[in-house]
Amino acid sequence: MDLFDDIPLQLPDAELRYEPHFLSKDEASDWFARLVAETPWEQPEVYLHGRYYPVPRLVAWYGDPEASYRYSGLTHQPVPWTPLLAEIRARLVDATGQPLNGVLLNYYRDGQDSMGWHSDDEPELGRNPLVASLNLGGIRRFDLRRKGGSRIEHSLELGHGALLVMSGPTQHHWQHQVAKTRTPCAPRLNLTFRWIR
């Protein structure tokens, strides 16, 4: 274990917990290969400025039957949990001490796949949502900035088997992104677990 595992990141108006070695490399590699192969990936389109654009990554939404999730004008109906995703959910419920009834899988195939600036602050996530983000595969930079600001205030390298938990007032005050990069990078899978009310 790393000396700095599970030490909270000190950002004002945020509760962040980062565990770079939450999973062993072998377990992370096994989960990555299985999830990439068995997930029914989609690339939905979002409507922006009068035009439809495909989201710059592949996605899938799994969850309990009542856990439909709406963001960016898209409503995702949950695909039932697979045995593997149910096992991963149980591990994260244990790690966070919180119930979790849905997971968004994002598959970043290369450096041109990305996620723009946003907060996970949809009404169905409740007032102070907990989002548990499990990272498998290639390393990507995760940026944070103050809402209303344009300057990146903190960045993390999210690597293979790392867990980042955002909770408390974080989504009220901060936005995050995974920016496009020209630097060659391996495919990355990100699983963001949450509780849909």
Rank of each mutant, 00 (worst) to 15 (best):
L35P: 07
E45A: 13
R188N: 00
D113R: 04
A132F: 05
G138R: 06
E27D: 12
R89I: 03
E87A: 14
G137V: 00
Q10G: 08
N128R: 13
N128T: 11
V178N: 01
G126E: 08
L3M: 10
R17Q: 13
M166Q: 01
W31P: 02
R146Q: 14
A37S: 14
I88T: 08
S119R: 11
A162P: 05
E122T: 03
L189H: 00
H173Q: 06
E27K: 08
D2A: 11
L9D: 09
G102R: 02
T181C: 13
L92N: 09
N135E: 10
A86K: 09
L35F: 09
N135I: 08
A33Y: 02
A132L: 09
L48G: 04
A60H: 06
D121S: 11
V36Q: 04
G50S: 07
V165F: 10
W61G: 03
N101F: 01
E42D: 09
P56E: 05
Y47H: 15
Y18L: 12
G159T: 09
R127G: 13
D94M: 08
D121Y: 00
V79G: 03
T82N: 12
S24Y: 03
C185W: 00
R141G: 15
W174L: 01
Y71D: 08
G137W: 01
G63L: 01
G148M: 03
V131C: 09
D143M: 02
V46I: 15
R197M: 04
K25P: 06
V103P: 00
V46E: 08
P184R: 12
Y107F: 15
L92A: 02
P56W: 11
A14C: 02
F142L: 05
T82E: 13
L144Y: 11
T192I: 02
D30E: 14
R89C: 05
H176M: 05
A132G: 04
S150T: 14
M1C: 07
L104M: 13
D5Q: 07
W31H: 11
R70F: 03
R145T: 06
R146A: 12
L158D: 07
G50A: 02
K147P: 10
S72E: 06
A186I: 01
S24G: 13
A132T: 10
L84F: 05
R17G: 11
S150I: 02
D6L: 11
A60F: 00
P83A: 08
R127S: 12
L23T: 06
E124Y: 01
G102Y: 00
Y62K: 04
T75R: 12
T170Q: 02
P129M: 01
D13L: 14
L58F: 12
P8L: 04
Q177K: 08
D110N: 15
L3C: 03
T192E: 05
F193D: 04
R151C: 05
H154W: 12
P99L: 00
D143N: 15
L125E: 05
G73F: 01
D143W: 01
Y18H: 15
E19G: 04
L134P: 03
R140P: 04
P8R: 07
E19W: 08
A162W: 01
E87I: 03
A90G: 13
R146L: 12
W81F: 02
P187K: 00
H118K: 07
L130H: 09
L189C: 02
L92M: 03
F142T: 03
D110S: 14
S72C: 06
L163P: 01
L136E: 00
S29R: 05
H76A: 10
A162G: 14
I152L: 09
